[in-house]
């Protein structure tokens, strides 16, 4: 039987590109958002009803439907009710949800496929960092998390990053199943430490950066399932998000590096000059 699914995915990818393009002009921005949303709906509906793997369709529709329904209702209510001034923190929250989603996909794929693909690991690590970081950014924007930096945090961050990288490579070679939980925990801690020292006023830039991280995590899922729409959507957001982050820094007359480590100069820890 000929499937319509590839057509749905092509349609989805095109609307993402056109939607983003339209969103970068004031007059067409709102329509662009709708275009991207409708493409997303087509891609999701196509996956639900047309996806076949080895001749078998999907099952567990009750679970899927309840997840979609609960998420949809919660999402609409939360997005409608939020105050105009609280919107950036809402974006951060939703971004964190996306990161967590990518991490959960990797976790459950790991369970029954072993750790064959490095993309599963990459999706897990990047998704977890994005989730934890976004939660901290969200907390900072609504005032529940204070700026916090300790002496040598910069060094600790780099060390943790290297440990994570090493553990991931080791995981790929040696296949130690339990290590996956250690890596997840490490990635979550890294996400928190990454955002904690950055000043609250710089949060939009950080959210934009984490946004592109989640894009890359989504693209890892695309590699995992050989799913072109996840790949185009994810990478598109990854690269557009990175450029947007840089543009946002430029608008503030600063460099990205300055935003990310700038707090060290202000905190008086004395290590700011080294960066």
């Amino acid at each position: 039987m000929v499937s319509l699914l590839p057509l749905c995915y092509i349609l989805g990818s095109v609307t993402f590109i056109v939607g983003l393009k339209m969103m970068s002009h004031p007059s067409t921005a709102r329509r662009g958002n709708l275009v991207a949303a409708s493409g997303m709906a087509v891609a999701i509906a196509g996956t639900l009803f047309l996806y076949r793997d080895g001749g078998k369709g999907l099952h567990n529709f009750g679970w899927i439907a309840s997840g979609l329904l609960a998420g949809g209702v919660l999402g609409v209510v939360a997005a409608r009710k939020v105050r105009m001034t609280a919107m950036p923190e809402m974006v951060s929250l939703f971004n964190g949800m996306g990161g967590a989603c990518a991490a959960l996909i990797s976790l459950s794929e790991f369970r029954h496929e072993g750790m064959a693909a490095p993309f599963t690991l990459a999706g897990l690590v990047i998704g977890s960092v994005s989730f934890a970081g976004s939660m901290v950014a969200w907390g900072k924007l609504n005032g529940s998390v204070r700026d916090f930096a300790f002496r040598g945090q910069h060094f600790v961050n780099i060390l943790l990053f290297l440990v994570l990288l090493g553990a991931s490579i080791y995981m790929g070679i040696a296949q130690v199943p339990l290590l996956i939980y250690g890596i997840t925990a490490g990635a979550l801690v890294y996400g928190v430490l990454f955002v904690l020292p950055i000043g609250g006023a710089d949060m939009p830039v950080v959210i934009s950066l984490l946004n592109s991280f989640t894009g890359v995590a989504a693209a890892c899922g695309g590699f995992l399932y050989h799913n072109p729409v996840m790949l185009t959507g994810g990478i598109l957001v990854g690269s557009a998000g990175t450029i947007l982050t840089i543009l946002m820094c430029k608008a503030m007359n600063r460099s990205l590096l300055n935003v990310l480590i700038g707090s060290f100069g202000g905190s008086g820890s004395g290590s700011g000059g080294a960066g």
Partner: peptide, 13 residues
């Protein structure tokens, strides 16, 4: 908007 688009992860989920 970009944040909403990387919601394509939902397909993997």
């Amino acid at each position: 908007g970009a944040n909403a688009i990387h919601g394509v992860v939902i397909i993997g989920a």
